[in-house]
Design a protein around this nucleic acid. Structure first.
Lengths: 189, 189
DNA sequence: AAATATACTTACTAATAAGTAAGTTTGCAA
DNA sequence: TTGCAAACTTACTTATTAGTAAGTATATTT
């Protein structure tokens, strides 16, 4: 695989996560990489194409991460902690997540990109639901809702928190994330 | 106030809440209203201007609603229920809220629009924090976090849920909102 | 009746966007 | 050394965008 191709994907992802899909252009990428806009089209004929590739890369990354945690024998609490670290890192870097960035632009995305984006959120939600369910069975977590609902509540909080954090100053992001985890603690109930 | 002006604001708000700020154009509005794009510029010289006006209108609407509830003597539980109804209605109409729609585009908005948007989220959060705090004092709610953190958690959930709802099919939005309210119930603890 | 303000339209401009066709350089293989 | 493919550039086109300047019709005021 080409290094330029990878750089385009990386830069594209950053642009989506900071400016948003409709606010970035091939020029933003090409000028940053010191190449011409046609060079981007050489790798990604259309912007839809690039968008879809970026989502696919993110799905792959997520699946690698969860696979890794499972094969390394992380318990459910540890897995959730690691998952939440993705968001604290994004917050530090003043970025949103892919789902939170592309979700709003769903009406101006190609059907292919939307399909991948849906697939991504479903994969995340499924993993989160399963992790919550098996963690509760082991007595690691306590919550009264259905795991699907709880997963949706948690994911919603995390996705939106990255957005709200940019609107509300003095936000204590760490406390926020701690509250999400503490809410699951069996000791607290 | 002109009826055309009001229609522009209403249409603009709908476009922001469905397509997003960067994805809608003056043409979208003018063609819908059967007028020319220059007519929109007559009322709103720039798009930034329109954006700011739309946010201001929403702030006003929110303050009228909360003011009304307070003067009518709604208790905190009733107030929260009414607040959450805004989101169930948005969900039915396949729309997001203003904060969730404009938040993602913060990097491509004018400083004035951003200022109003920040003001709006702060007003909502302040109201929610106060309502949670006084409701807990009266024994209507039970939660262990600081009211500020709890308010942020709830608002995050609601804002993002409207986005995720469009990504995840078969979402049971009612159960989701019920879970948010049930979480506050003193009986459940 | 004349002047003026309101609510537009007509007819543009300048900028930026995605996308393309054809050419160029470079390294490698036959 | 010729041929060819990969990785671009040059030089565009077409479409859409926000925005503007000047004009027009209509109603209201003076």
């Amino acid at each position: 695989m080409s290094i330029t191709r990878e750089k385009i994907i990386e830069l594209g992802e950053n642009l989506i996560r900071t400016k948003g899909y409709n606010a970035f252009s091939y020029q933003d990428i090409s000028s940053e990489l010191g190449i011409k806009n046609a060079a981007i089209h050489y790798y990604f004929p259309s912007k839809e194409n690039l968008g879809t590739s970026i989502v696919k890369t993110n799905i792959q990354r997520f699946e690698e991460m969860t696979g890794n945690m499972q094969s390394r024998g992380f318990d459910e609490w540890h897995q959730l902690e690691t998952f939440i670290k993705i968001y604290t890192k994004s917050h530090r870097e003043q970025k949103r997540c892919i789902v939170g960035s592309l979700g709003p632009d769903i009406n101006s995305l190609s059907t292919q990109t939307v399909a991948e984006l849906k697939r991504m959120s479903e994969i995340i939600l499924k993993w989160l639901t399963d992790t919550l369910a098996s963690g509760r069975q082991k007595g690691l977590f306590a919550f009264s809702e259905e795991p699907e609902i709880k997963a949706l509540l948690m994911l919603s909080s995390l996705v939106a928190s990255l957005q709200l954090a940019r609107l509300i100053d003095n936000i204590e992001y760490k406390s926020f994330c701690n509250a999400i985890l503490a809410d699951l603690s069996p000791a607290g109930k």
